[in-house]
Amino acid sequence: MDERLQRIQFVTRYYDWLQGLRFLPFGVLMAGFALWLALLPLEGGTPATLGAIALGVGLVATLGLYPLVGGYYQRRFGEVRSSQAMKQTRLRLTLLFAVAGMALAFGLVALGLRGVGPGFSMSWALAISAAALVAYWAAIGRFVPHYPPIAGAMLLVALLHALGLNPLCDWLHVGDAASTVRCDLVTFHAAWGVALMVLALLDHRLLVRTLSPASADAAELGAAG
């Protein structure tokens, strides 16, 4: 099968998941949270309750936007209903990544409780996140080219963080334990936020390039000619 037909097959199969603008608010939310954390005054510490509330409200808002943006894609490009086999594959993938994410979170908490340094845990979290991105890319058929470079960038951030060369930590004047934790949180949310935004925009671009709305008049003229 040639590249054009492969692209058609891929875009039709993963139509919902390639609707990048649906995922863009999640990236904006995470990057915004990272920025908010970074701009908090050092003396005041981290107001955990306020942060959790802000993140929760943002998450509800982005979840509300998800179907609305889906409606935009349906009006602009039309509707595709997935086959039963595809629905099962997608459900398996979603469950697999959700379970892996929870295992990662619990693992990091366990490492923290055992007294392992916070910077070390966060580097691992980012490295595993990069591996998850590559696994996701492989699971959906290795067709889209932009996942591996973004995973590579995330791995680079993990490496810089592990080596103590994270520029964000320099900017945040990391010294004591509290500011180290804050730098970890800022780095993790900023890395995921930026990665999600870039992936969302590139997925959207792939969809728009494959599904250019028909120019009715031109096509009619071409057919008549």
Binding site: Q9, V11, R13, R76, F77, G78, E79, S82, Q84, S215
Partner: peptide, 24 residues
């Protein structure tokens, strides 16, 4: 090819995919 990758698709989607006019 598109229809073999899904359960069903609507007319607008296939029109976007092929760039054809409604008549064609």
């Amino acid at each position: 090819t598109a229809l073999s990758a899904c359960d069903s698709a609507d007319f607008l989607y296939l029109q976007s995919l092929t760039g054809l006019s409604k008549g064609n």
